[in-house]
Design a protein around this nucleic acid. Structure first.
Lengths: 183, 183
DNA sequence: ACCTGAACACCGTTCAAGT
DNA sequence: ACCTGAACACCGTTCAAGT
C-alpha cells in the first residue's frame, strides 16, 4: 500500500507537465506553444499548471533542465574523446532544440529564472573547454578566450546551421593553433 | 505649391511610425512594445499602422533597415582602419540594439521577411571580413571560416557582454594567427 | 492539497464605416 | 487614399469556488 502517496503523485504530475512542455517548446517553439496547448497535452486545465509552476518562464526552465539532464547522461559516454569531437557531439545533440537558444536569450532579459539557467549553462560549457585546455600548457587567459569562442561558435552554428565540413573547419580554426583539436 | 503632395506625406508618416518603432523596439524590446504603444508614439490609432505595413514583423524589418542605414553611413568613416578595429567599432555601435539580435533570430523562424533581412545582414558582415582577408594571402576556405567565426563572436558578445580587454583578446585569438589583426 | 470555471487585462489583427 | 471605432480570436494569469 502507498506510503506517502501524495508527494509521489505530485512529482509525477509535474513531470508530465514538464515533459509535455519540453516536447512542445522544442517542436513548435516557446511562443507558439500556449499554456492551453501544454495543459491539453498533460491532461489538465490551463490554470492547473499554475499550481505546479510559477509562470511560463519557470516552465521553460524546468523543461530546459529536463532536456539538459537527458543530454548530460549521454555526454558522460564521450568522456575520453578529443575536445573537438565532444563539441561536435554536443552540437549534433543540441541541434534538435536549436530554436530554444534564441528563446533563452530573449527571455533572459526579462526573467531572472531564465537568466540564471542561462548563466549556469554557460558555466557548464566553459568548464568542459577550460578543463581540457588546462591539461595542456595553455595560459589561463587563452583558456578563457578559447572557451568563449567555442561557446559563441556553438551558439552561432545552432542559430545558423552549416554542413559538417564547414562546421569542422571553423572549430579547427579555433582549436588547431597548437594541435589542440587532437587532445 | 505642392506637386504630388500625397506620396511625400505618405513617406513622412511611414518614417514617423518606423522611427517610433525603432526607438521603442531598441529601448523596451520587440515583444514588450505593443502596436498600441507604437501608434501612440506616432500619433495614430493602432489599426492605422496596418495601412502602412503588413504586420509587426514588417515593422521590425523596416526599423532594422533604418537603424542599419544610420550605422552604415557612420561605418564609411572607418574604411581605412584595421579589421579588428572595424569589428570593435561595429560591436560598440550594435551594443545599443543588442536585444534586437535575439529577436531577429527568434522571428526569423516564422517570418520570411525577417529571415531575409537576417540573411542580408550576415552577407554584409561576411563581405566586410572576407574582402579584408582576400587582400592577404588567405585561402578562400580560411576566409569563410574566419568570417563565420567573426560573425559568431559579434553575435556572441552582443548576447553576452564582456569588458573591452576580454573582447579584444577573443578577437585577437581569431585574427592574430598570421598578424591579420593589424591589416 | 489539488483542480476547475469563469473572468481579467492585454495582444496582434481585421473590417465595415467614415472622410 | 487615408484613418478610425468596434470587434475578433487569442494570450498568460488570477481567483473564488469546489472536492
Amino acid at each position: 500500500m502507498p506510503r506517502n502517496r501524495r508527494p509521489q503523485d505530485r512529482e509525477e504530475k509535474l513531470a508530465e507537465i514538464v515533459t509535455a512542455a519540453a516536447r512542445l517548446f522544442s517542436e513548435a517553439g516557446f511562443e507558439q506553444t500556449s499554456m492551453a496547448r501544454i495543459a491539453q497535452a498533460a491532461g489538465v486545465t490551463p490554470n492547473t499548471i499554475y499550481w505546479y509552476v510559477e509562470d511560463k518562464d519557470a516552465l521553460l526552465v524546468a523543461a530546459l533542465d529536463q532536456l539538459l539532464g537527458e543530454g548530460a547522461a549521454d555526454f558522460a559516454q564521450q568522456a575520453g574523446s578529443p575536445l573537438i569531437e565532444q563539441v561536435l557531439w554536443m552540437l549534433e545533440r543540441l541541434r534538435q532544440h536549436a530554436t530554444l537558444i534564441s528563446v533563452v536569450h530573449a527571455r533572459s532579459e526579462h526573467s531572472p529564472a531564465v537568466a540564471t539557467w542561462h548563466d549556469g549553462f554557460h558555466a557548464l560549457m566553459d568548464g568542459i573547454v577550460t578543463s581540457h585546455l588546462a591539461d595542456q600548457g595553455v595560459t589561463a587567459r587563452e583558456q578563457d578566450a578559447t572557451a568563449r569562442l567555442i561557446t559563441f561558435a556553438v551558439e552561432g552554428f545552432l542559430a545558423h546551421p552549416a554542413d559538417a565540413a564547414d562546421t569542422r573547419s571553423v572549430l579547427e580554426l579555433v582549436l588547431n593553433r597548437d594541435g589542440l583539436a587532437r587532445t
